[in-house]
Amino acid sequence: MNEHIIEFKNVTTVLGNQIIHDKINLNFRKGEIISIIGGSGSGKSTLVREILGLLQPYRGKVSVFAYDMAHITEQHYLELSKKWGILFQSGALFSSLTVLENIMYPLHEYSVLPQNALEELALLKLLLVGLPKSAAIKYPSELSGGMLKRAALARALILDPHLLLLDEPTSGLDPESVTSLDELILNLRNLLNLTIIMVTHNVRTLWHITDSVVFLGEKRVLDFGKVAKVATNPHPMIHNYFYGPENIEKSNGH
């Protein structure tokens, strides 16, 4: 099962007048949990947006499930959108729908199942991500930050995607929620054989659940590999990231 789900070939990204990525090459394997890390403005979210086809690189090629994202037809994109689930940074739940309706939304779009089946399946995902049943009839504005992320994750999971993209799934959460969300993500991968790509700032998440780490910096991929390997990279940016004053304590614990 070593097939590549996502490939970046010599990808150069320009936003405004600024070069964000300069000839990046990356291959993501199926069934892995991959974290994209790096300082602010290193283009982590940009990378995710390129995978999603929301942003086209200036030069180079991004392929997802062997589709070239620059020349993808509408029909193929539709196929892709049933295969991936995305958790956006701020949740991006539809504010005018209840949580249950939000989770149901993609299924409702693609399915002719009776309403009660849709609701049951949505509720299933709601329980799966650890939300209480009572959250189903709430509106996104009535949820706390942690619940919002969970609800958005449930929506990302409703179509049983093969690929899950998480943009800062645990940012702004309390440590306990981070741990439980991490466990949830790990469980999902083990159970459903998902490929998970996430942007994260949480060092604990990195050590605990990720298989490989992509370190972005200086417009390129500074390192890509197992966390333990990347963490020993002497490059000052990477060293500071893992062993900066704030993180020494955390990483010593593991």
């Binding site: 249950l100 609701e119 049951e120 399946l121 299933l124 329980l127 009839i137």
Partner: peptide, 12 residues
């Protein structure tokens, strides 16, 4: 197992 818990859908 979980689906059987889900038959009662909370209604506003």
């Amino acid at each position: 197992e979980k689906l059987n818990e889900c038959t009662q859908i909370p209604k506003p």
